[in-house]
């Protein structure tokens, strides 16, 4: 009974697709040429994955987004 009460209203799907963090040394040198690293953070259709799914710190997420957009211009990722 108590359990049922607790769960009421928590209908939101929990999304727990946390991706592995890139290595610390890769963070400092993140570049549009690191195609394999960047691909880990895009969906199959080439969308940039939200931080909710990637689980990376804000600073790195911004760097990732920037690098992915640059790589797109040069035809390296979708």
């Amino acid at each position: 009974m108590a359990d049922r009460k607790k769960n009421r209203g928590s209908k939101r799907k929990s999304v727990k697709v946390r991706r592995p963090l890139v290595q610390p040394e890769a963070i400092a040198r993140l570049n549009l040429r690191d195609v394999e690293t960047l691909k880990q953070f895009t969906t199959d259709l080439g969308k940039i994955m939200p931080r909710r799914l990637t689980g990376v710190p804000p600073k790195l997420q911004r760097q990732l987004a920037r690098a992915i957009k640059r790589a797109r211009v040069m035809g390296l990722v979708r």
Partner: peptide, 18 residues
């Protein structure tokens, strides 16, 4: 020469130099 991930100006691959 690397293939593009998506066609750029109807081309499928290009020669890169850094």
């Amino acid at each position: 020469r690397r293939p593009f991930a998506i066609p750029l100006k109807k081309r499928e691959s290009g020669v890169y130099v850094r």
